[in-house]
Structure formats: C-alpha cells, structure tokens
C-alpha cells in the first residue's frame, strides 16, 4: 500500500476524528465538506465515542487478497453511543458471545500488514465490552 493513502486517513483511523455540523447537529465520519443535503455548513472537529454496540456483523470466510492470512475474521457495523455507525473488524471475542446488540469498545489495532515488507496500517477494531 502506498503510504500517502493511509497517512491522510490517520486522524480518522487513529483518533476517530469526525466533523460535527453545527447547523444540524449531524456527525460526519469520515468528515464531509458539504452536508448530506448539499449545503455548506459550520463544522467543528468532533471525536467519536469509542463505545457502542454491534448493529450487524458477518464472518468473512473468503477474504480479498490483502486479508488472505486473516480469514476467517469478523466484520461488523458498530453503532456508537452517539448514533454514528462505522464498519470495522471485531477481535478478541468468544464465538458464543457474538450477536447483534452486544456492547463493544474500539481499540487501536493493526488492520493491514502489506505482506512482510510494506507499511503497516493501524486503525480501530471492536472488542467485547461486556
């Protein structure tokens, strides 16, 4: 992976930086430059909460090339406590625990390793919080 591509996403992947539309209260993650209804808006930096619950999930058994060594792994959509949703993997869990509605917390993890030689990509993954 070319480093510039992951580097520009660090504020979001490392620190969960979003933008809050001060006019409507909407939260955009990743940040948007125009509101969802196409308007210029007054935005402010907003850090997402790192807790939420599983909105939906799947177990990926057939992975794309860059995750060849990781499968099977679980991808989910987390609904954070402020209502924002994001997609990430779930890690460090027992199979029996996995279900819609389970509480999770976002932790800092390695997401992609680009074989043995490339740049390491870090970001958030969900872990059980109950």
């Amino acid at each position: 992976m070319f480093p510039a591509r992951i580097w520009r996403e660090f504020p979001q992947r490392y620190r969960l930086e979003a933008v809050k539309n001060k006019d409507t209260g909407e939260v955009y993650f990743p940040p948007r430059y125009v509101s969802k209804d196409g308007k210029k808006f007054n935005g402010e930096k907003y850090i997402l909460p790192d807790e939420g619950k599983i909105f939906t999930y799947t177990v990926i058994e057939v992975p794309p090339s860059q995750f060849k060594d990781e499968a099977p792994y679980v991808v989910c959509i987390v609904e954070l406590t402020d209502g924002t949703k994001l997609t990430c993997q779930i890690t460090d869990f027992d199979k029996d625990w996995l279900d819609i509605g389970k509480k999770v917390r976002l932790e800092f993890r390695r997401v992609q390793t680009d074989a043995h030689h490339g740049v390491l990509s870090y970001g958030y993954k969900a872990v059980p919080a109950e």
């Binding site: 060594d69 990781e70 460090d92 800092f108 993890r109 390695r110 390491l120 870090y122 993954k125």
Partner: peptide, 9 residues
C-alpha cells in the same frame, strides 16, 4: 499477542 497486536497497539 493476536496478529493484530504489536508493541505499538
């Protein structure tokens, strides 16, 4: 450490 854990995480 799981594969997604290293000294940095």
């Amino acid at each position: 450490p799981a594969p997604d854990v290293d000294c940095v995480t």
